[in-house]
Design a protein around this nucleic acid. Structure first.
Length: 573
RNA sequence: UGGGGUGUAGCCAAGCGGUAAGGCAGCGGGUUUUGAUCCCGCCAUGCGGAGGUUCGAAUCCUCCCACCCCAGCCA
């Protein structure tokens, strides 16, 4: 793509570079759009050009203001600024109409009154040529009069349309007298009732590009067949510029879908809560989930732009998200499934120690420290404790009765005994601190099996946590299936209601990301509209009900198979 | 069996006649008070296939094969 542009610039085919991102406001932006956005805006920035935002709103039947608002929000969030104001194809309806009349005058367009089904029949098939419409040879005068009548609402929808007169036997089907204008007795969200005829994509897109001075109109592969038509209009119309269309492959991602149609199905069939459900690959969903815009931009850069159909492994996206968060998320501790830990020799060993100062980020001391309450009564992860002493140290690097483990940031402890409740469930573990192990290693015989995280049982933030995983279990979802349900991951959302976060998280702001050590990246849930600015977003403790943290993504887990945190545990709640 | 495209590692992707970049995944090792991060190493005698041109071919030519898109008054 770069090569093409450099060539065009070098050959003097255009003075500068102008691109455009042309969404139709009929759905939310998703990760696939992000690729196009990064390409269009990125190229413009790289070549010192401009990129326009233009809503391709030529079909009032499916479009709505809700989407134009959401799209602008997502674009701004992603970090791109469009040149000039927001543009709309609908703003060019007047000019487009005049150009249609121009074609009629040139004898290059005619009003066709064939019913829809007949138009299809006359078009021929992939291997057979089409036949001329019986209305094809109408006089210019008749066509002028009829087209005006169309505009004036004298035809019912579907009874007439304006077609270009090109070649019904053309091997490229999109050149077989394509429709320029069709009748829609429908109010448009921007032009209201001004029009009852609307231009087709083919007739509107290239001309809108020309009006705006777009030099490189980048679109996806499926429009390749339309390029001759795009050029035909530009050649036959007195347009002010000669934009050119270039195509690239759209983004396909494994384990998810990137089609607005299927995304809509997920919402409408209740598979997810809404367009901004954190499991959705929409920009709104990913934002809610805690993905930062930089991660999406990085991912798009990693993926590259080519003309070969491909499907990118979602691992690549997840890597970009983790890599970005690793460098930007402060660390904290949070116990998801609490198990009480009582330290019997606390006073004797720790004395008056009631809090610890731990770094916000182990690699960036300049980020400062946070205070973490510490004491004789803590919570640890249920999955981090086992009474099974036969578990090997290599396989289970956590707390086992009679063995040692490091409490992250503090002492090494030894598990002494367990207490059970009336139902026979483990309800508490008694442990002892190993003296002299605060900031120092114990003698070899007391080597801890590993490091576990913890939270003070008396001073912490009770909270809820939503764990998200891939929406689809299959790498390549069948979007045509009667029901999407069988392909969905039943564990794509796990809601935990009784979690305990360290006290410093009371200061967390909506949308802010943290790494909960040993677990993953989480962010305080935010209103789905993305309107919160950091300044006035509510803090985690500002609400009555326990705050909700969304897991953006788990830490990479290299535990040997069958021994990972998810595979082994003392019990689930 | 019309037209338009595309084939480089498990997945993306550079390469544009001079002897196969990079990333993801995977594997092995080191560091580590996160089974994370970080660091080191391995991972295409091979570029869809077969011929040909050339001192030299993933790059040029020929033929073949596979896959994708097009028959909306959607975009």
């Amino acid at each position: 793509m770069r090569h093409l542009i450099r060539e065009d610039l070098a050959a003097g085919r255009c003075a500068g570079l102008v691109t455009r991102f042309p969404p139709e406001p009929n759905g939310y932006l998703h990760i696939g759009h992000a690729k196009s956005i990064c390409l269009n805006f990125g190229l413009a920035a790289e070549f010192g050009g401009a990129c326009h935002l233009r809503f391709d709103d030529t079909n009032p039947a499916t479009e709505a203001q809700e989407y134009v608002d959401a799209i602008q929000r997502d674009l701004a969030w992603l970090g791109f600024e469009w040149a000039g104001g927001v543009r709309f194809t609908s703003a060019y309806f007047g000019q487009l109409y005049e150009w249609a009349v121009h074609l009629v005058r040139q004898g290059l367009a005619y009003v066709c009154e064939l019913p829809l089904k007949a138009v299809r029949d006359y078009r021929g098939t992939l291997t057979e040529p089409g036949r001329d419409s019986p209305y094809r040879e109408r006089s210019v005068a008749d066509n002028l009069r009829l087209f005006a009548a169309m505009r004036d609402g004298e035809f019912a929808a579907g009874t007439a349309c304006l077609r270009a007169k090109i070649d019904m036997a053309h091997p490229n089907i999109s050149m077989r007298d394509p429709v320029l204008y069709r009748i829609r007795q429908q109010a448009h969200q921007r032009t209201g009732r001004d029009w009852c005829i609307y231009p087709s994509y083919d007739f509107a897109h290239g001309q809108a590009d020309a009006i705006e001075g777009v030099t490189h109109s980048l679109c996806t592969l499926e429009f390749q067949d339309h390029r001759p038509l795009y050029d035909w209009f530009i050649e036959h119309l007195p347009v002010p510029a000669r934009p050119r269309q270039y195509e690239f492959a759209r983004l396909n991602l494994s384990h998810t879908v990137t089609s607005k149609r299927t995304l809509r199905r997920l919402v409408e069939e209740g598979c997810v809560a809404d367009w901004d459900d954190p499991r959705m690959p929409t920009l709104a969903g990913m934002r809610r989930r805690g993905v930062r815009p930089a991660a999406i931009r990085r991912f798009c850069a990693d993926v590259g732009v080519a003309r070969a159909d491909s499907r990118v492994d979602i691992d690549m996206l997840e890597h970009a998200v983790r890599d970005d968060l690793n460098r930007h998320a402060p660390r904290a501790m949070c116990v998801l499934r609490p198990l009480r830990l009582i330290i019997d020799n606390y006073a004797a060993v720790a004395g008056e120690l009631h809090a610890l100062r731990l770094p916000r980020h182990p690699e960036y001391p300049e980020w400062g420290e946070r205070s973490v309450p510490f004491g004789a009564e803590l919570f640890i992860e249920r999955d981090d404790f086992s009474t099974d002493a036969s578990l090997s140290r290599k396989r289970f690097k956590r707390l086992v009765l009679g063995d040692y483990v490091r409490l992250r940031g503090t002492f090494v402890i030894r598990a002494e005994q367990v207490r059970h409740d009336a139902a026979g469930q483990i309800c508490a573990v008694h442990a002892s601190l190993v003296p002299g192990t605060l900031g120092a290693n114990p003698p070899p015989e007391m080597r801890p099996r590993g490091v576990i995280h913890w939270v003070s049982a008396v001073d912490h933030l009770p909270c809820r946590v939503n764990l998200y995983e891939r929406l689809f279990t299959v790498a390549v979802p069948d979007t045509g299936a009667a029901s999407l349900l069988p392909q969905l991951n039943p564990d794509s959302l796990i809601e935990l209601a009784d979690c305990r976060a360290e006290a410093s998280l009371r200061q967390a702001r909506a949308g802010e990301s943290y790494q909960f050590e040993r677990q993953g990246y989480f962010c305080l849930d935010q209103a789905g509209d993305g309107a919160d600015s950091d300044a006035d977003a509510p803090a985690a403790d500002s609400n009555k009900k326990p705050p909700l943290f969304n897991r953006t993504i788990g830490l990479k887990d290299s535990a040997p198979k069958g021994s990972g945190p998810k595979d082994i545990g003392a019990g689930k709640p």
